[in-house]
Design a protein around this nucleic acid. Structure first.
Lengths: 160, 160
DNA sequence: TATGTATGAATGAATG
DNA sequence: CATTCATTCATACATA
């Protein structure tokens, strides 16, 4: 295939909903990625975008996303590769080989067509709910239990 | 696309680990966000959570995170549209994906600021390409042919 | 045409 | 509040 941005028959582009990097762009991107610089700074993004613009339509967002995905997938692949002795059901990335980060999930719910029953997340197990400074809660809502979604060992004033 | 619950035989169900706002919840949230765009106070969070609880399971954390993300990703401020879009003959079905693209998913946005999806991807209206900030530079947009969303080019000491 | 895979994009959550 | 991570959704593209 060729660059999808270009019409494949002398027509106009059908407004691709999703950017498709051209082989050239991909090459450049991968090259930069290999250099070791994970998430490039916005300055870098602009430069890269500018460079890639010469090889097809592209935006800074595309570049940013690309690096984000690249990094994430790369890590994913590594994990899969590491678990070579594990199950061999590795079909797609939707596989849940959680062993490093996600120990377990505690809830499961269906996916009703009404979307009125979606539920998840325990009361306040995660982020910092101690932001604002005017009221500054102190008592915290009584933690109903130990949801421990993640094995949080960090303490930033959440519990106490 | 079918239900994310595969459960095809005593395997890990891979249920949704993260909260997914229902259309109703989203509406309410956006409504509140529009009223006083900013991080609601702790008290407000509780109230909102209570309100949203009537339309599905939700926690204060979810609400908090939502507002944080919402603010951070105010992809409703900058409009680089009406710029070049040279090759964009604007003749395709680039209308929007409010109904024809996502018929059965529920996390679709109710009223997306459709305006400049001419080509395929707007510079900033998508992901988090805002590491330089997004609110303190409001009004910088509009410059056709130049995405000066973050012309400050400050250095926050990120990975770059 | 129908299915499978690869990957860009959206977004909830986490971290500093 | 800023930035990054992780997971999922949706779509381009390849294949049968």
């Amino acid at each position: 295939y060729c660059d999808p941005l270009m019409t494949s028959g002398g027509h106009k582009i059908t407004a691709r909903q999703r950017w498709t990097p051209t082989p050239v762009q991909l090459q450049i991107l991968e090259r930069i990625f290999d250099q070791g610089n994970g998430t490039p700074s916005k300055q870098k993004i602009k430069e890269i975008t500018s460079e890639l613009s010469q090889h097809g339509q592209i935006s800074e967002t595309n570049v940013y996303n690309w690096f984000q995905n690249r990094r994430a997938r790369s890590k994913r692949k590594q994990l899969v590769a590491s678990s070579n002795n594990a199950e061999s059901e590795v079909e797609t990335e939707v596989d849940s080989f959680n062993e490093k980060k996600k120990p377990e999930i505690f809830h499961a719910q269906q996916n009703p067509p009404r979307a009125e029953d979606l539920c998840f997340q325990s009361p306040e197990i995660s982020s910092e709910l101690h932001y604002l400074g005017d009221d500054h809660l102190t008592g915290k809502m009584g933690v109903p239990g130990n949801y421990n979604l993640y094995d949080q060992a960090e303490d930033y004033g959440m519990a106490g």
